[in-house]
Each structure stands twice: as structure tokens, then as C-alpha cells.
């Protein structure tokens, strides 16, 4: 065979075909690509409102990328946090843009998740066999809220500090374990370096990993069950 077909695209360049064959012989990528991309069809009844799940996913990717870039300059210490964010805003080239996309992206992501959930609810897509995907979806929504909450403290401003005082006080009302939860969230009795360190760890490592895992489950179920039919 001297040519390769990827959907409507035919590749005849002998070097390209040979190179791809060499990879395909070892990993069998053509089969996966055909299944997942080139021989796949999408139903025509998808409309404007069907896009919001995908948009939320794109915003998650955008948050991960801008978050990685912010981490290069951010310093998670009580004495340095505020000045490092000020440096990102004022001195780092395009730092204001990256942080702006990260800050506004979190708000926009919660809006698109809200629209996505409303669409799924109104069209009854959560019904059998997709009940568990609704549950995973709600967990993803809660993860996004927790990411917003932990990320809010990181610039160490007056508002973020005192919002976290109130926010970590709330769970202490839970009977028996409440006080303990507050202690664990704060890393002590007061909000300080320990709180900032663990909010940083939760925000940049723990929650993004859990969220990525849940997104994988969410998408795998959609691939397995197919897109729901028209109303």
C-alpha cells in the first residue's frame, strides 16, 4: 500500500506513509484513530445548548494551562504570595493576561457548567441509562466550586483571607466532626502559612487530578452510551 486514508484526506507522500506505517506496525494507532476520529459520526440534532459540556471541558484545559504558567512565578508563602501575584500583574510579560484568563475563566466555567446542567435537566438526559453520569457531573460541579474556593485564597488579599475565615468556619457547625474538619482545613486554629500551603497543594495538585479523573469517567460513559437521541 502506497497511500493512507484518514477520512476525507488521502496521504500519498511515500516518506509520510512509510513513517506512519512504522509507527502503526508497533502501536496499532490507525485502528484507534479511525474509531475515535476519522470514521466517527456525530448526530445532527446537536444544537447550541449541546456545546456547553464541551466548553466547560475546554475551560478546564485552559485553567490547567494558565495555572501551570502562573505557578512559574507564584510563591505560596504568607510573606511572598501577595507580592508575587503583584509581580505577575505588573512585571511578568503577559502575566496580567494569563492571570486574567485564569480568574475570569473560573467564573465563566461555573456559568457554562450551570447552562450544561440546565440543558441536561430540561432534556431529561439524566434518565436511564445515564443516571450515574449525572452523579459524576454533579461531583465535577462540586470539584469546580472547591477549586474556586481554594484558588481564591492564594493571592493572600484582605478579601481572600477573610472569605476563607468565613468559609472554613462554616463546616465547624457539623456535629461531632465539625471542629476537626475546620482544624484540618486550616492546618491549625488560625489561618496562616499552614492554611496557604495546604490550599495551594489542594488547588494545584489534588483537586485537578481528581477532576481530571472524573472528567475521564464522564467522557468514557458518554462514549460507551452514545449521545442521547433527539427529544
Amino acid at each position: 500500500m502506497s497511500s493512507l486514508r484518514f477520512g476525507p484526506v488521502e496521504i500519498k507522500n511515500r516518506l509520510a506513509v512509510k513513517a506512519f506505517k512504522a509507527i502503526d506496525d508497533r502501536f496499532g494507532v490507525k485502528e484507534i484513530l479511525d474509531d475515535e476520529v476519522f470514521e466517527k459520526i456525530a448526530p445532527s440534532h446537536l444544537n447550541f445548548w449541546s456545546c456547553f459540556g464541551g466548553i466547560s471541558f475546554f475551560l478546564f484545559i485552559s485553567q490547567v494551562v494558565t495555572g501551570m504558567l502562573l505557578m512559574i512565578y507564584y510563591q505560596p508563602s504568607v510573606s511572598q504570595a501577595h507580592s508575587s501575584v503583584a509581580m505577575i500583574m505588573n512585571e511578568v510579560p503577559f502575566g496580567w493576561l494569563i492571570r486574567g484568563i485564569h480568574v475570569w475563566g473560573s467564573s465563566l466555567m461555573l456559568i457554562t457548567i450551570g447552562v450544561h446542567m440546565a440543558k441536561i435537566y430540561i432534556s431529561g438526559i439524566y434518565k436511564a441509562p445515564r443516571e450515574l453520569n449525572w452523579v459524576i457531573g454533579v461531583c465535577l460541579f462540586l470539584m469546580t466550586l472547591n477549586l474556586s474556593f481554594t484558588g481564591y485564597l492564594l493571592p493572600w488579599t484582605q478579601l481572600s483571607y477573610w472569605a476563607t475565615v468565613v468559609g472554613t468556619e462554616t463546616p465547624s457547625a457539623i456535629p461531632v466532626v465539625g471542629e476537626y474538619i475546620r482544624f484540618v482545613l486550616r492546618g491549625g486554629e488560625e489561618i496562616g502559612q499552614m492554611t496557604l500551603t495546604r490550599f495551594f497543594a489542594i488547588h494545584v495538585i489534588i483537586l485537578p487530578f481528581v477532576t481530571a479523573g472524573l472528567i475521564t469517567l464522564h467522557l468514557m460513559q458518554i462514549r460507551r452510551q452514545g449521545i442521547s437521541g433527539p427529544l
Binding site: H82, M89, G100, I101, W104, Q158, L159
Partner: peptide, 12 residues
Amino acid sequence: TTLFPAHLGEKA
């Protein structure tokens, strides 16, 4: 973000 730059309040 260009029209309404992200805000950074005073230090805690």
C-alpha cells in the same frame, strides 16, 4: 480580561 483586568486587592 482586557476590558476588566483581574483585580488584586490589598494584602491580607
